[in-house]
Design a protein around this nucleic acid. Sequence first.
DNA 1: TCACGAATAT
DNA 2: CATATTCGTG
Length: 314
Amino acid sequence: MGEEVSLTDYESSGGNDDRLLWEVGLPDVDDLTPLNMQLIPSELASAFRISPEMSKTMTDVNRASQNTFSSLQRWHSQDMASMNNSNFKTFSYERSREETVTERDETDLIREGSDPRKLRRVESGGTEEADSSLCNENFADDSSAKTLKRPRLVWTPQLHKRFIEVVAHLGIKGAVPKTIMQLMNVEGLTRENVASHLQKYRLYTKRMQPNEGPSSSDHLLTSTPATESMRESSESGHLRNTNGHMAMPTLMPYQPQMVAMPMMGMPNGGHVGMPVGYGGGPPLGFHHHYNMVQQRDWSGNNFGYYHPVASNDK
DNA sequence: TCACGAATAT
DNA sequence: CATATTCGTG
């Protein structure tokens, strides 16, 4: 459950700390049941033949924590490569799957940690932000970051959803990589990542406009380029800021979480939200095929690689 | 110099 | 396919 939180803030760049957010509403330390406390009375336990190993010592607890941490940190580093065989990877990967399937929606959009390029984030406007959190880089060890190649980003349904939401709320006009990236506020996400995804998105988007109506199929396919009616429906005007940061806690016009997407494994049925601001009668979310094998679907599941950890979200 | 985005490359 | 990278352009 919430283990993914922010241990990975290697450098939370644009984001403001999520930690605060995560802390809000959480029980106080003393409100929590001590981890080393027995949850089941021994009599009861024995009655149900529950493991006799229930009482844990603080040491045990700590050890467990350590493990958790390590697994969360596993990425960084090329070591990943070396220790690759790792069960770590597999481990968390599988877990994410389970969790994802269930229903958690936003919560974790994220991505891994290391990050090569993002050192330069502060640009126009921003004065504040950055710095403070930037330096973190927990494991300064291996040079890390820059120079390192990060694993390919996998656009999980969550990420994609975020993406769609943001794009939808910026007009066609404001939907450019940098801005999108900023609004998504996902740790580790780079502009390139977004640009690439956006390119594909636009592609699908276009491919759907010209209505499939193969009407006069054969010839003349390119004839109807028209469809030019673009207009951004939503006045994207506000929140744009366009430049550094704007952390974002305040804006986000859209509701960040409306969970429950009906579309999960449906074949060609539902579509994800479509961009409200995209050309006239926008195409809907694209998704591809149906087959749950191992494909990813723009509308739903993907069983991908590492599923990042999370942070983000206002 | 930087960011876009189309074209290419993995 | 899905992503990443390159590269001409504004």
